[in-house]
Amino acid sequence: MNDISLTSGTTHSYLDQLEAESIHIMRETVAECEKTVMLYSIGKDSSVLLHLAMKAFYPGKPPFPLLHVDTTWKFREMIEFRDRRAKELGIDLMVHTNQDGVARGVGPITHGSELHTDVMKTQALRQALDLHGFDAAIGGARRDEDKSRAKERIFSFRNSHHRWDPKRQRPEPWRLFNAHKRKGESIRVFPLSNWTELDVWLYIHRENIPVVPLYFAKPRPVVNRGGVLIMVDDDRLPLEVNEVPQVRNVRFRTLGCYPLTGAVESEAATTEDIIRETLDSRHSERRDRVIDKDGSASMERKKQEGYF
């Protein structure tokens, strides 16, 4: 890490400022809420979030557990990475799966992306939060991800049905967050609100933060479905007649359920390569997510329904 920022109180790069603000937000959350959890989705944003949490409470451990909502369709490498990181850092990891959805056999291939996401992700998250009575959930969403996020507050309230009401948002002047809840409400807290995809990669690079290897290009078996490259991660992906997985050098810009996440052809094998690729990219990262294509205003609707 950079010596200048360590010894000098005044030369403060913008990454230092973003870091300090995110840490401030996490500390406010635990101080003002009764039971906090950090949503850990294993992706790069979650990796940054976890790293910031370790820094925020150093020399102590973060005073909250991590929660992973497992849809059972995540890439295998994600699950391995998750378990390894939790062990290395010695923090409490909770995994929740919607058992009702599992019993009904809900999956992205049989039920479509929208229903699968709703049952296995949105509803599963609500179940987990209700089950443990968490009143604050820290998540890694960023405002640059889509238009409706751009207007979401850092402390974002959900009613007892976990719905978001964009018309009832509280103003957040200065750094004064109001964590007072109405009955039944819970809070989603977004410490990375003001970070962009590039900021996240620069920070991962600067701080040497481990991320799932799927972000780095490597020969992987994929099938081309309507222009989207889907990785054949296990034998649950039904192949069409005559469809043969091809090995291509690919990586992922975002990670989710493997049948819903498109890979991009790339040579970027290190964080430096990724930063360069991000700088040159002519496309935003969400383009590779199948679920966002369900409709132009769909993300806003999903969020109103309680999607994180």
């Binding site: 000098s8 109180g9 403060h12 300090a20 603000e21 370790m54």
Partner: peptide, 18 residues
């Protein structure tokens, strides 16, 4: 002045410290 990046000899406006 304690931080995860080590002990600092000074820190200024905008830094989150312990």
């Amino acid at each position: 002045i304690v931080t995860a990046d080590g002990v600092l000899d000074r820190a200024g406006v905008g830094r989150s410290v312990t």
